[in-house]
């Protein structure tokens, strides 16, 4: 069967794409999968005054190899001498991905914002 350039290109691209997918999946199969490891980065420099309080953006990243479900992150800070907490719930955070969230306090905290990981469900 005679093949023209188009057919060669399609065959080559197909074979490459397939080999890539299969190869990466095979590699992944043999790799040990680290449990989900959520990390939160607080962006104090981007904090702003909102109508209902002081808003602090946070980036939550899953550094593990397994997705995290129903992840809860808590931020703690001292505002006007009182301890305040703020909570962010993340429904689904795949491995290696980030999600943006925001903590909210009644006013600008005078202390450092402490971040705690309250819990998650394993898939």
């Amino acid at each position: 069967m005679k093949r023209n350039i188009l057919e060669w290109v399609v065959l080559a691209v197909s074979a490459l794409a397939l080999a890539g997918v299969v190869g990466l999946l095979a590699l992944e199969s043999f790799q040990e999968r680290r449990p989900p490891d959520p990390v939160a980065e607080v962006h104090l420099d981007e904090a702003r005054d909102g109508s209902l309080g002081w808003i602090v953006p946070v980036t939550i990243t899953n550094n593990g190899d397994v997705a995290s479900e129903q992840l809860v992150i808590e931020g703690t800070a001292t505002v006007d001498g009182e301890e305040e907490t703020s909570e962010i719930d993340v429904d689904f955070l795949p491995a290696g991905t980030s999600v943006e969230g925001e903590f909210s306090f009644s006013a600008e905290p005078e202390s450092v914002i402490g971040v705690r990981f309250l819990g998650q469900r394993l898939p």
Binding site: G20, V21, L25, D65, T97
Partner: peptide, 16 residues
């Protein structure tokens, strides 16, 4: 651009 390689490959493989 933000997806990990593993996620991209998993998505592409299943949907393909």
């Amino acid at each position: 651009g933000g997806s990990s390689v593993r996620d991209i490959v998993g998505h592409v493989a299943l949907e393909s």
